[in-house]
């Protein structure tokens, strides 16, 4: 066991400091409106943080590469999972064979009509007299 790589203490401290710094960055940048880039920046920072954890804390950098391969395979299958699911959910109704399924999702669920709705203090709200369907295309 003696020849296992022992990461220097300094490396661990630098990585932890970078992770805390990047956590601050991701909160700070979330208050800046970058439009559609918001999510891209947030995920980019998260991926940098995740890589630091995986390579240094989980020792993947010094491990036999078969462990890294195993980890990357899980991410690859996650990618396939997402892609194939979105190929369905993003393009429903595009062929106009069944127009009802095209935009089925901006209506309020029916069970809201029977819910006992409550406000900030847990007091009941009478919402049911309104016609919710008025704002179904609210954006």
């Amino acid at each position: 066991m003696s020849e296992h790589h022992i990461t220097p203490l300094r490396t661990y401290l630098i990585i932890a400091a970078s992770l805390l710094f990047l956590s601050g960055v991701t909160v700070w940048v979330s208050y800046i409106d970058l439009g559609p880039l918001n999510i891209v920046v947030a995920m980019l920072v998260a991926t940098i943080k995740a890589s630091l954890v995986a390579f240094f804390f989980m020792h993947l950098l010094w491990d036999d590469k078969k462990n890294l391969t195993m980890f990357l395979m899980s991410l690859m299958f996650f990618g396939i999972f997402v892609t194939i699911t979105l190929l369905d959910t993003e393009f429903r109704g595009d062929l106009d064979l069944n127009p009802e399924v095209k935009d089925p999702i901006n209506k309020r669920a029916v069970f809201y009509d029977t819910l006992p709705l409550t406000d900030t203090h847990g007091h009941p709200v009478d919402e049911h007299s309104d016609n919710h369907h008025e704002d179904k295309d609210h954006h």
Binding site: K66, M70, S74, F81, L86, T89
Partner: peptide
């Protein structure tokens, strides 16, 4: 260690299903 990483793979895929649910519903 290799077995542990095989377990980590199953863990990532467990959460993957939930991340897909997140992605689909957020896009809707």
């Amino acid at each position: 260690k290799f077995a542990m990483w095989a377990f980590i793979l199953t863990e990532v895929l467990t959460f993957a299903g939930l991340f897909v649910a997140y992605i689909v519903f957020r896009s809707w």
